[in-house]
């Protein structure tokens, strides 16, 4: 699942898009993204955007804008970081796709 997610994030996408592509629950995708984000594989598309000194303060659409990072996660768009790109290249470099193992019961 992480391989597919990284491959999808070659172009920045929203959580809803990723969830649609992976055919999985949106909140589960959010969980995986924050886990990958914490380890530096993915990031929000605007993390390092500079912002206008006065504009954001007066902007009534701040919640739509992820430029302010944690304060405005209304519509987060995710992207691959350099580490994520390296990981994706490595995954592609391996010979086969990892088969999905069955869940072990008790």
């Amino acid at each position: 699942m992480t391989d597919q997610l990284l491959a999808l994030l070659e172009r920045p996408r929203t959580t809803a898009e990723l969830s649609g592509e992976l055919k999985t629950d949106e909140q589960a995708v959010e969980g995986l993204l924050s886990l990958l984000g914490a380890r530096g594989y993915v990031g929000k598309a605007y993390d390092s955007s500079p912002t206008c000194g006065t504009g954001c303060g007066s902007c009534s659409l701040q919640r739509l804008c992820p430029a302010k990072g944690e304060e405005a996660p209304f519509l987060p768009v995710w992207r691959l970081t350099a580490r994520g790109r390296d990981a994706l290249l490595k995954v592609r470099g391996t010979s086969t796709e990892v088969p999905c193992p069955k869940v072990q019961g008790r």
């Binding site: 605007y46 955007s49 912002t51 206008c52 504009g55 954001c56 902007c59 804008c65």
Partner: peptide, 16 residues
């Protein structure tokens, strides 16, 4: 849409 708030972050938001 962000442009209606402030044009500056809106320009950066085109990165998506």
């Amino acid at each position: 849409m962000l442009g209606f708030g402030c044009n500056v972050p809106a320009i950066y938001a085109t990165r998506t």
